[in-house]
Amino acid sequence: MRRLFVLLLLLLCSPALGLRLVLLSDFNGSYGSTTYPAAVGRTVGRIVGEWKPDLVLSAGDLIAAQKASLGAAQLQAMWQGFEQNVRGPLQNAGIPFAFALGNHDASLALDRHEAAAYWKNHVPELHFVDRANFPFWYSFVAQNVFVAVLDATGPKVGAEQRAWLAAQLAAPVAQNARYRLVMGHLALAGISREKNKVGEVIAEATALRAVLERGNVTAYIHGHHAAYYAGRLGKLQILSSGGIGGRDYVGFAGTARSVVTVLDVQEGQIKLTAYDADTGAVIPNSSLPPRIDGLGGPVFRVESLK
Rank of each mutant, 00 (worst) to 15 (best):
E204V: 06
L186I: 03
Y229S: 07
Q76S: 14
P96W: 04
R20P: 01
E194P: 08
L12N: 05
L165N: 05
L150K: 06
N133L: 11
G29C: 12
F252T: 12
Y118L: 02
V147M: 09
D278K: 14
W51T: 04
L10R: 10
V149L: 08
A106I: 00
F252M: 02
D276S: 00
G158H: 04
G29V: 13
C13W: 13
H222S: 15
V6G: 00
S69A: 14
D278W: 11
K195E: 15
S258E: 06
F5S: 13
P284N: 06
V302K: 06
Y118P: 14
H122D: 06
R87K: 13
A73H: 11
D248E: 12
A106L: 03
V182R: 03
C13L: 15
V145W: 02
I292Q: 03
R257I: 06
M1D: 15
R301I: 01
P155R: 10
Y229W: 10
A187C: 09
A109P: 13
A98G: 09
G41M: 08
V198A: 13
V198R: 15
K52E: 13
N133G: 14
L101C: 06
G29L: 03
E204W: 10
G215L: 07
V182G: 00
S241I: 00
Q74N: 10
I47S: 01
R257T: 03
F27K: 02
R178T: 10
P298A: 01
G251P: 12
A189N: 12
I47C: 01
I283Y: 05
G297D: 03
E114T: 10
I270W: 01
G246N: 07
D278F: 11
A219L: 02
A116T: 09
V56W: 04
T153F: 12
E213C: 05
T34S: 04
S240E: 12
Y138I: 13
E194R: 14
L108R: 15
G49W: 07
G41D: 08
I244Q: 05
T279K: 07
W164E: 06
